[in-house]
Each structure stands twice: as structure tokens, then as C-alpha cells.
Design a protein around this nucleic acid. Structure first.
Lengths: 307, 307
DNA sequence: CTAAGTGATAATCAGTGGTTATGAATTTCA
DNA sequence: TGAAATTCATAACCACTGATTATCACTTAG
């Protein structure tokens, strides 16, 4: 590949102007410079491209075919040029990972917020559990991840966004049978309770076990549900209890008749939702804008559950 | 447009290798040269394209988008490169003009000859009368024209290909009524004969008038037919006589029952079929090859009518 | 802690692509 | 017919670009 974009531009200009002098003007160079480049291109491509007459320049058959190809190259280069010009203001196509216990509840608001306030960020979403997301982030397949902190790993940097408290979820009957009143319900009161949890690998499962002081080998634990939506329906039917993050509370209670929620007494168990990025990611100003949108939307949702 | 194809090649290599050193090796340049060009490209396009880690290089969101565009440009440039390589052996896409009294009879043989002996010439045909063809040739829309000489015009160069003698065509009855025997039939014997001719603008019309010593204002002339095929059918039905070139003889007598042909006595009236090109067209070796194919086919056809 | 890996920077120089001036050929016009 | 105009090609010269080697700064691995 021994031709240059400049040579192709000159070639196209001569083909259009049918005159070396005028083509040189259009290209803002001197006629001899253009003449030399056209000749070099003819040597590179192995044939005469123009039939030179005293007052006219005609394309040879070879020249005609080359012009067609040159147009493809220059067209594509123009589109790259135009893209760079359009995107000098920070327009980006992002790839963001998000865990399943956050995605369904947070994304509608976040995408709407991005669309309403600023169209320069286009987001492609990748939904997976934490370990997988961190692997994608490490390998560059995603640019940042929304998950429950801590992520672990010195190569990452965490941006805490908002607190997402856990509520106890179950059927009205099941919740009535608890001995403690709502004001003083404590997670450790559930040590012998029957818990329905997400399958292993979801952080929410580990968090629930820790908060309730239970162990994965306990006979009271059922870990097999694949989503919070499934969990909601099971506990609403009386199949045990589960921990429900505030983020999901309104959405699930509206979708599942019979699902009831109780707040724990202070200090309330919670997870911190954060944005995780590679420590080596610098100079990407979209990161702060995205973090702010997610924080606003997330805090809006959890605040609404507290009123 | 201030980036170069080289820069895009380097960029693509780094994106694929994820390492400046290995990318430089792939591109056969030193690592610092490549590093400087990537940095220049980042400045030209207005953003960071790669996230540099100690042991890995990741594309930024902007880098990902640019890579997509760069691939389009490089792909198109590769195709031009490949085209040049494929066509260094003289492959050409020609644009050839040919008059209507030659095209139907000569073209099948010529195209078959081109296909059989050499696939490097691709021919696009433009059929029109002589004046129009010369105008196309002058303006560069066609590369050469096949017509009856002389073409006229000092800007053109003529290559005579073969002689195409005229035969007298008519119905058996009409031809029997001529007083002279076949051996001594002369064109001027037709001065008072009723002639059917092509509409004005076809060289064959002027040639017939001249050969027969007639004038376009003569009451014996009917000029309205639009093709030799039409003429054949009219004279076969007894509507006058016409001059039929050898090139068309076999084809028309096979297609039109009742059509009879007579040869003139020596010196036989004829037209010279030639290839006309611009005098400024030089260094196009396909011209001789094409001329040879046409000559072989044309002479083959007229020779067959003489046996 | 040392050695290895890796991209960035600096100094230098060959090569590229531009300019002005001029030559050669053709065409136009008086 | 000759002079002037037009037009592409060539030559001499020079600024700029893109390459090299050497080195630096930083991180990571052993």
C-alpha cells in the first residue's frame, strides 16, 4: 500500500476538473506538486490514469476503475473525519456492566436521565454477576461496572454512589409470625428463619447470609432462585423470607400481590452501590457525568421507599 | 483530513496486538516511530484512543469507535491495492462505440473472441450513429469506435480493419427484372431504381446514394427504415431495393425468407470498417489486441459470404 | 531489591512533498 | 503566419515529516 490519501485527493480533483492547474487550486497546492504526485500514483498503480490533451484531461479505462476505488477510500476517510469533528465535544459510546440485582430497577431511570439531559453518551449494557463483570472490566470489554461494593482488586477504583438498605420480604402471614415488633426487627433475629436466596455467585446472597448470621450449609437456606423477581413471588407465597434491597422494593411490591416488606431497626443493613473503573482509566470525563446520573436516579428511588 | 493511511495502519496494529512494541514489529518500524504517530493521531482526532497499562493496551470508548471507521478506510484502501495488483497485467474495462449497421452482426463474434482468447478485456458497448459516437469519443465517454471510414476530424486516428462489400438486396422477382446479368451488375445501373434506405444520419444511407449516383431529393428514395433488419424485410416483400453489406448478408438471408442478394461486378462498391481512436490516446496496448480480434471476426464473416 | 518489560521523549538524519522557475508542446488569435 | 496564451512536465531548492538509535521514567515480576 504505497499510495497516500493526498494522492487520491489530487487524483479525484483532476478527474473532476479535467485540468491540472484548476485541480491544484482546488487542493491548495501548486500545479507541479500535483503533477508530480499524479505521476507517482500512476507508477505505484502500474498504469496511465489520464490521457493528457492540450486543453482537456480524460480518464483512461484504468483511470476510470481506479477512480471508483479511490472514491470508496476517500468516502470512508471523510466519514472518519466527520466522526472526529462530531465527537470532539465528548460524544462516546460506552460499554457498562451492571449486576442483575440492580439492572432492572435502576436502568430505566438512568437511560432516561442520559437521554433527557445529554445525548452525547450512548451506553451499551452488559448484565452479569460481579466476578464476571470484573473480568470484563480487567480485559477492557467494558468501561465501568455498577455493582455492590466492595469490588476488591487493587487495579480498580471504586466510586460509591448511594446506600441501598435491605428490607425483609415475605408473605403477610409469615411476617406476622415473627416475635419482634417492626421497630426493633434485627437481622440476627432471622438466624433460624427459613431464607430463600439467589443462587451462588450473586453478592446479595453472601450479604444476606452475613447480615442474618447464617451459613450456606445451614438447613434453613434455599439458594436456587435466579432473579429477585422470582424470589419475590416465592416468598409472597409463603416459601420463606428474603432480603429485598430498597432499589427493588417498589417495583416488586407493585408486581407481586401478597408481597410484604418490613424495615429493620437501626443500624439498618445495607449495601453500597458503586461505580467501579480501572485505576488506569484517566481523562475520561464521561465517567463523572455517568456517576452523577446513576447517583441521582438511585437516590431518588431509595428515598421514595422511605416516605 | 489530517491523518494518514500509515497512522491508521499503526492504530489498527496496536489495537490488535495490545502492545506498542509488537505492533511496531508487525508494521516494520521502530516502536518510538509508532508511538509518535499514535500520539499525533490522538491529537488529530481530539481524544485519547488507548488506555495505557504497564502490560496491556485497552481501547477507550472513543478508540473503539475510531477503530470501526479506520477499518472501513483501510479495507477500501486494501481493495484499491488489490485491484492494482490484479490489473497490472493489462486488465481493462473498455467503453467501445459501434454503429447500428455493424453491431448486430459483428459483436457476437467479437465478444466470443475476447472471452475465448483473453479475459483481461471487459467491454462496455455503446451503439449509436457515427456523429454521436465521434462526440462521445471526443469527450472521453468511450475509448474507441467501430464504424465505417472515413470518420473525419484531425483529432482522431483511424485503423482500417477490413473491407465490407455491398450487395444488392431485393425480392427474387425484383432482381429478375434487372436487365443486366449478375456478372456485370454495376451500381450506376440503379440510378432510376427505387431504393429503400435507412433514415438520415446513417452512413450507409449516404454511401448507398453515392454508389448508386442518386440524390436524397430523388423521388425514387425512401429513407425511413430504422435498421437493416427492417430494410431486409421490406425489400424481400418487393418494396424496392437496398444495399446490403456483406457483414449482414448471411444473418439477414437466414432470417428473412424471400430475401435475395446479388453481387456487383468489379470494382465492387464497399465500405471500410475501422477502429477510430483519439490521436492523444497512447500507450494503450489493449487497442491493438481489440483491433486484431475485430479484424479476425470481420474478415471471417465477409470471407464466408464470398464462398 | 534488581532485572525486565514497556511506552514516551530527545537528538539526528534520510526521505517526502512542497515551492518557484523554466521548458516543451499545442492551441488560439490578430 | 507569427506571437501570445495555455497547460503539463521537469529541475533546483528547501521545509517538513517520519524514521532511527539512545535514553528515561515507570511498573511489574521474581
Amino acid at each position: 500500500m504505497n499510495f497516500t490519501l493526498r494522492q487520491l485527493q489530487y487524483f479525484q480533483a483532476v478527474a473532476e476538473q479535467r485540468n491540472f492547474g484548476r485541480a491544484a487550486q482546488v487542493c491548495n497546492v501548486s500545479q507541479p506538486a500535483l503533477s508530480v504526485q499524479i505521476k507517482a500514483l500512476e507508477e505505484t498503480l502500474g498504469g496511465i490514469l489520464f490521457e493528457r490533451q492540450a486543453r482537456d484531461i480524460l480518464l483512461t479505462p484504468l483511470g476510470r476503475d481506479v477512480l471508483e476505488h479511490a472514491r470508496q477510500v476517500l468516502g470512508a476517510a471523510d466519514r472518519l473525519d466527520q466522526f472526529a469533528r462530531d465527537h470532539s465535544g465528548g460524544h462516546r459510546s460506552l460499554s457498562i456492566g451492571i449486576i442483575p440485582t440492580i439492572a432492572p430497577y435502576l436502568l430505566p431511570g438512568v437511560l432516561a436521565g442520559l437521554r433527557a439531559g445529554d445525548v452525547s453518551l450512548r451506553v451499551r449494557i452488559r448484565e452479569a454477576r460481579t466476578e464476571r463483570l470484573l473480568s470484563f472490566l480487567r480485559g477492557g470489554e467494558i468501561d465501568a461496572a455498577v455493582l455492590a461494593l466492595p469490588a476488591g482488586g487493587s487495579e480498580f477504583q471504586e466510586i460509591p454512589l448511594f446506600k441501598d438498605q435491605f428490607l425483609l420480604a415475605g408473605s403477610a402471614t409469615r411476617l406476622k409470625r415473627l416475635s419482634t415488633s417492626p421497630d426493633v426487627l434485627r437481622p440476627l433475629d432471622l438466624q433460624s428463619a427459613q431464607l430463600m436466596l439467589l443462587e451462588d455467585g450473586h453478592c446479595l446472597t453472601d450479604q444476606a447470609l452475613e447480615v442474618c448470621g447464617q451459613d450456606r450449609s445451614s438447613g434453613q437456606i434455599n439458594m436456587g432462585a435466579s432473579s429477585l423477581a422470582t424470589l419475590s413471588r416465592l416468598v409472597a407465597e409463603g416459601f420463606g423470607l428474603t432480603l429485598m434491597p430498597e432499589l427493588a422494593a417498589r417495583s416488586e411490591t407493585e408486581a407481586v400481590p401478597g408481597l410484604r416488606l418490613l424495615r429493620f431497626g437501626a443500624p439498618q443493613p445495607a449495601r453500597t452501590v458503586g461505580l467501579v473503573r480501572r485505576a488506569s482509566t484517566v481523562g475520561e470525563d464521561w465517567m463523572d457525568r455517568l456517576a452523577q446520573v446513576i447517583r441521582d436516579v438511585g437516590e431518588g428511588i431509595v428515598t421514595a421507599t422511605r416516605t
